[in-house]
Amino acid sequence: KELVSALYDYQEKSPREVTMKKGDILTLLNSTNKDWWKVEVNGRQGFVPAAYVKKL
């Protein structure tokens, strides 16, 4: 599985998104959309802005 690192804090703005803190390591589930990537963090799945994470 592919991992990404959070470059910035992000506070979810809808139920489809997830909150992350800078430095968090997230499991990348889907990166086909260039703007929003689906990740899993702390057992929750949702979307984060692609520009806020980088692949490890």
Rank of each mutant, 00 (worst) to 15 (best):
K1C: 15
K1D: 10
E2A: 11
E2I: 15
E2G: 10
L3C: 13
V4P: 02
S5H: 13
A6F: 01
L7W: 05
L7V: 09
Y8T: 09
Y8G: 06
Y8P: 01
D9P: 07
D9Y: 05
D9C: 07
Q11S: 12
Q11G: 08
Q11V: 15
Q11N: 14
E12D: 05
E12H: 09
E12T: 09
K13F: 06
S14E: 09
S14W: 06
S14R: 08
P15T: 10
P15R: 10
P15K: 11
R16D: 12
R16K: 13
M20Y: 02
M20R: 00
M20V: 10
M20Q: 01
K21V: 10
K21A: 09
K21C: 12
K22N: 04
D24K: 02
I25P: 03
I25Y: 05
I25A: 04
I25L: 10
L26N: 00
L26W: 02
T27C: 11
T27V: 15
T27L: 15
L28A: 02
L28N: 00
L28F: 03
L28Q: 00
L29I: 14
L29K: 04
S31K: 09
S31D: 15
S31Y: 08
T32E: 14
T32F: 10
T32G: 10
N33C: 12
N33P: 05
K34V: 11
K34L: 10
D35S: 11
D35H: 15
D35Y: 15
D35L: 13
W36C: 08
W36M: 06
W37N: 01
K38V: 14
K38C: 14
K38A: 09
V39W: 00
V39D: 00
V39H: 00
V39F: 00
E40K: 05
N42P: 05
N42L: 08
G43I: 02
G43E: 06
G43F: 05
G43H: 06
G43N: 07
G43Q: 06
R44D: 03
R44M: 08
G46E: 01
G46R: 02
F47Y: 14
F47D: 04
F47I: 07
F47V: 07
F47H: 05
F47M: 08
V48L: 02
V48E: 01
V48S: 00
P49G: 01
P49V: 01
P49C: 04
A50L: 02
A50H: 03
A50R: 09
Y52I: 10
V53A: 03
V53Y: 01
K54S: 13
K55E: 09
K55M: 13
K55G: 08
L56S: 08
L56K: 06
